[in-house]
Computed example of a mutant assay.
Amino acid sequence: MSSSDIFIGETIGTAVLILLGAGVVAAVVLKRSKAQNAGWLAITFGWGFAVMTAVYMTGTLSGAHLNPAVTVGIAIKDGDWGNVPVYFAGQLLGAMIGAALAWVAYYGQFRAHLTDPEIVAAKSEHAGLVDQKTEPDAGPVLGVFATGPEIRNVWQNLATEIIGTLVLVLAVLAFGLNDDGKGLGTLGGLIVALTVVSIGLSLGGPTGYAINPARDLGPRIVHALLPLPNKGGSDWGYAWIPVVGPLIGGALAAGIYNLAFV
């Protein structure tokens, strides 16, 4: 596959992944949404279906990595790093496009939520408590765009992201690759999507399971840039964890694969 196919495929695929993934979070958490309060099950299955849709849509173009951690894992497995920067560029751009499209789709709900008197009052109270505790004010809707921990413990948060991504990338490498070894196969796409659901249900509680650097960083940049009233900060102090953790997890998964499966 050519570099242009890779870039286009990863941009489109990651945009669809984030549009549907951020979309289900927005549907569940924002006021005036018909799916408000649908719960964690809706979010985890929504993300799983988002992965499945994006993989089947763009697998023939780029192999549908859609995740820098997957790209790193495959590069370590194969020893081929030639197109890694192209994959990364498409994934980050696609993640930003998908986040922006989710904002457009839920524009009215974002405004209704962030201008609601109860939300504004709660945010003001939270900001005061945060100031007293010297913790970052992450804003009420950052979770639509990016992840954040329930308990801020750097080593636990980092370990959670490493472990979750290790499971994901090992699954991709073990039973999800096409015959050419470059991306997810037909059945592999479905199985990996269900693996994402499993990770969300089992390991998503502590940090929100980024397990994908582009999925977290691209939308976090969009959150920082969008003109959302009362949105709060983008929690840049935490932002390195869902980038570094998944990359480490992807590398470890490749190492385990090469030791155990080859």
Rank of each mutant, 00 (worst) to 15 (best):
G82A: 11
V55A: 01
A15E: 09
L41Q: 14
T44W: 13
L41R: 14
L30V: 11
L17Y: 00
H65C: 12
V51N: 09
Q36I: 15
A89Q: 09
I74C: 09
L41I: 10
Q36K: 15
G59L: 12
L66Q: 00
K34I: 15
A50P: 13
V16K: 00
V86E: 11
A54H: 03
V55K: 01
S33K: 08
H65G: 14
V29P: 01
V25C: 10
K77L: 10
G79F: 08
Y56D: 11
V51P: 03
D80H: 06
A50Q: 06
A38P: 10
P85F: 14
T58V: 07
A54S: 03
G73R: 02
A26I: 11
M57S: 05
V84W: 02
F45N: 06
I43W: 13
A75T: 10
A75Y: 05
I76V: 08
G48I: 06
F49T: 11
A15I: 06
V72K: 13
L66K: 00
P68R: 04
V86W: 14
T71Y: 12
G21I: 05
G23F: 01
Y56L: 02
A35Y: 07
F88D: 07
A26R: 12
V51T: 02
S62M: 00
T44G: 15
Q36C: 13
G73M: 06
L30A: 01
I43N: 15
W81G: 04
N37R: 15
G21E: 01
G90F: 13
L41E: 13
V28I: 08
S33E: 09
P85T: 09
T71W: 08
K34T: 15
V70T: 09
P85A: 13
V72S: 08
D78A: 06
Y87F: 11
G48R: 02
G48K: 12
S33W: 07
V55N: 00
V28G: 09
I18H: 08
L20I: 05
F45P: 15
V84K: 04
A54M: 10
V25I: 03
